[in-house]
């Protein structure tokens, strides 16, 4: 049984290379964004916070998309790897959502004038964060793998559908947060920096999910070994 979900174990070193590439891309994109953007008409230099806040939000959304895919595939195929993929993506999504909120707060203080306000965009994002904490808490409460996978797939789908509400919140309700920008509302002087930083964040996202997924698989392997050992000891006693 354990053999069925053991991945071809890739060297951790390969992940380290991917990690170094991702972080180097981030350094490059940030340097370009910081050096090549003229001050914004309204925000001045504070516009530069866009290059970390917006990519963090986008990659958090993508991480939730992986949670959704993993959860749906698990319920459909009942293969453990999809459950582990969803769990890996959920932890990364939590980190990125928390980062997005914190960066938004740092950006909001000098521009909006407040660190926080209960507007629908901020409120729905906070709810998304709490639901993700709930998802991970549920996983740690339930020890039985099949039941854990079923329940967390349901919560994972619910939480990731929430992303649509977060995304649409600025259109559905009145908010302090602006609606989505588009290429027509962002000057080319900023668009390139934003795209490159988004790309670098995408690499970081892939690196995190792969690394966390591998950890999840090894954890299951350790669990299975412990179970096998207990079983063997039990047999010895009965003989």
């Amino acid at each position: 049984m354990p053999g069925s979900f053991v991945p071809a174990v890739v060297s951790r070193r390969r992940y380290q290379i991917l990690g170094i590439i991702a972080l180097a891309a981030l350094v490059g994109a940030e340097l370009l964004g910081l050096s090549a953007s003229p001050p914004d008409r309204d925000m001045g230099h504070l516009q530069k916070i866009m290059y970390v806040h917006v990519p963090a939000a986008w990659s958090a959304f993508l991480a939730f998309f992986v949670v959704f895919i993993g959860s749906v595939l698990y319920l459909w195929k009942r293969e453990e790897r999809y459950d582990l993929l969803a769990a890996a993506a959920a932890e990364v999504a939590l980190v990125l959502t928390a980062l997005t909120l914190a960066l938004g707060s740092i950006w909001g203080r000098p521009t909006w004038g407040v660190w926080w306000t209960w507007d629908p965009r901020l409120t729905t994002t906070a709810i998304l964060l709490v639901m993700t904490v709930g998802y991970l808490a549920l996983r740690s409460f339930v020890d039985e793998p099949d039941r854990r996978a079923r329940w967390s797939a349901a919560v994972g789908i619910l939480a990731s559908l929430n992303v649509l509400v977060v995304y649409k919140s600025v259109q559905w309700w009145r908010t302090l947060h602006q609606v989505q920008s588009s290429p027509s509302t962002v000057d080319p002087a900023y668009a390139l920096g934003l795209r490159l930083n988004a790309l670098a964040f995408l690499l970081v996202l892939v690196y995190f999910i792969l690394l966390r997924y591998r950890a999840a698989r090894l954890e299951r392997l350790v669990e299975a070994q412990a179970e096998a050992r207990e079983l063997a000891q039990g047999e010895e006693l009965h003989v």
Partner: peptide
Amino acid sequence: EWRFIVAAYGLTWVVLVAYAIRLQVRLRRL
């Protein structure tokens, strides 16, 4: 205004690097 920019970029790096290290350490232990 630069205080806020430095804080935003600094926080981003602290969070991303800390999480990467945490994952690597966890993998090594496993």
